[in-house]
Design a protein around this nucleic acid. Sequence first.
DNA 1: CTATAAATGCAAATGACTGGCAATAAGGAG
DNA 2: CTCCTTATTGCCAGTCATTTGCATTTATAG
Lengths: 144, 144
Amino acid sequence: MTLDNLLKTLHTAKCRMTSQRRTIIDVLLANENTLLSADHLLKLCQQKNPDINTTTVYRNLELLDALKLMYTVNIDRNTMGYKLVCHDYHHHHMICLICGKMEAIEYCPISPDLIDQATARGFSITNHNLELYGYCHTCHTDLL
Amino acid sequence: MTLDNLLKTLHTAKCRMTSQRRTIIDVLLANENTLLSADHLLKLCQQKNPDINTTTVYRNLELLDALKLMYTVNIDRNTMGYKLVCHDYHHHHMICLICGKMEAIEYCPISPDLIDQATARGFSITNHNLELYGYCHTCHTDLL
DNA sequence: CTATAAATGCAAATGACTGGCAATAAGGAG
DNA sequence: CTCCTTATTGCCAGTCATTTGCATTTATAG
């Protein structure tokens, strides 16, 4: 996701560029390979711009999500992880259980064959998810 | 999952069998192919035994989870779905977006090859998830 | 039968997130 | 540049699923 793309999409949607929104976008771009909780994102934003509020962060995440610019997954039982979508084509991710770093896997296991099997059993499949969890190199080294 | 198995595991863990716990287990067994929210489970339990409390349901779900007897997935942004684990061997599920019915898929796409790719990129994978979402036959028919 | 440790119920707390509303400010029109 | 419309923000109170503290009850080993 490029800054240009983001700005263009926001402009088309008649959204205005406030300093808060700009900070949030900058931080999201700087962390485009990491799943951030709303709280973590807020803290990172406040380092750049103390005038930023929890509600504002949530509302911007909601906006970006509505514009299909966000990827969200549950980090744990009750917290969502947010990041900008990274490519246009369908793919999955590996996620570090410690730092939240994500890397794309250019692979989707959902073959037509699997869909057919599901259909044969009366299920019409609309979507799916697949995530690999583990430890990234940095965090794995820290564990030892 | 059989009742016998459950009772045995609970006994080994020095857990006591109360009427509330028994009701919860019965309802979970009767719905072993359906993802239930805590609230839905509570309501089903109360039909059998009005003397049952939200906290008790949560505490029993937590216990069964700690004993590795539960399977949990997020139903939506802020609600967990719970069901008993169903087999001993590794597999995945199709989940109905409307009624929560789940069916096992005897298939796991995570090949040694994929793990190798991840390793080559510095990730050590510990686990993964895969769920197919869609509509089961009954709910799909109802939609039309 | 009794002691003890597990389990329950209640009410209050938590924590992520949302909504109402008044105040502020972006940015296009003129 | 100024004005006006309307998006956006901040604050605060509210939700909703889930958890915790604590006093009370109850299962079960001995």
